[in-house]
Structures are given as structure tokens and as C-alpha cells.
């Protein structure tokens, strides 16, 4: 499980980093981090591992999830997908559907349909 899970985390980390920096361009770092905090809070009861997602002025990181992977978190992929879905739905309210869709498409293109 270890290697496969690590691959999943690394793939989603790249995706989240891209999402974070694209959002920060339009929203600013402060609002972007508030958005991340909000979504983490929303998902934390269902997926406690999401609380290991770290964010700050430098961006977002899954390092702590990666180092805690031996704890055997379930449904990591589902957790990341829910995080992204919720994140984009709030982003649409902030930037308008068109720009949020632009960001979503850009990510889809860069990650070959992973999202």
C-alpha cells in the first residue's frame, strides 16, 4: 500500500499546489489560505487526515500527510477529491463561474484528467 499511497499523495500535492498558486493570483494569499482553512474545517470530521494539510504564505503542502502515511489513512483519494470539489465550489462564488472553470480546466489539462 505504502508506495501506491505515496504516489497518490504526491500527485494530489502537485495538483493542490497548482490550485493554491492560481487562486492566490486572483484572491491574494490571505483569502486563499482562509479558503483552505474553511474547507479543511468542513472535511475534518469525515477525514481527520485533512488536518495534516499545511498551508501558509509559501503555499500548500502534503508533507505531513506523506510522513504519516504508515498510520494507514483510508480513502485518501476520496478525501482529496472532496477537498478539491468543495474548494472549487467556493472559488466559483469568489471569482465567478467562468474564472473558476478556467482554473479547473487548466488543472485538468496539466494533470491529464486526474481531476
Amino acid at each position: 500500500m505504502g508506495e501506491v499511497t505515496k504516489d497518490v499523495i504526491v500527485r494530489y500535492e502537485t495538483l493542490l499546489k497548482e490550485m493554491w498558486s492560481e487562486s492566490a493570483k486572483y484572491l491574494g494569499i490571505l483569502s486563499t489560505n482562509l479558503l483552505v482553512e474553511r474547507v479543511i474545517w468542513e472535511l475534518s470530521q469525515e477525514y481527520p487526515a485533512i488536518q495534516l494539510l499545511k498551508y501558509g504564505p509559501e503555499g500548500i503542502s502534503c508533507t505531513q500527510i506523506l510522513t504519516s502515511v504508515e498510520k494507514g489513512f483510508n480513502d485518501l483519494e476520496e478525501m482529496f477529491m472532496k477537498f478539491i470539489t468543495r474548494y472549487v465550489s467556493i472559488l466559483a462564488k469568489l471569482l465567478g463561474h467562468e474564472r473558476a472553470e478556467e482554473i479547473r480546466k487548466k488543472i485538468i489539462t496539466e494533470f491529464g484528467g486526474a481531476f
Binding site: L27, G28, L30, S31, L34, L35, R38, I90, K93, L94
Partner: peptide, 11 residues
């Protein structure tokens, strides 16, 4: 203006 409105939509 951005920070005020963004924060309220998020929170």
C-alpha cells in the same frame, strides 16, 4: 474591498 467580501463569502 476584496479581503472584506472574500472573507465573508468563505466564512
Amino acid at each position: 474591498l476584496d479581503l472584506i467580501t472574500n472573507s465573508l463569502v468563505i466564512i
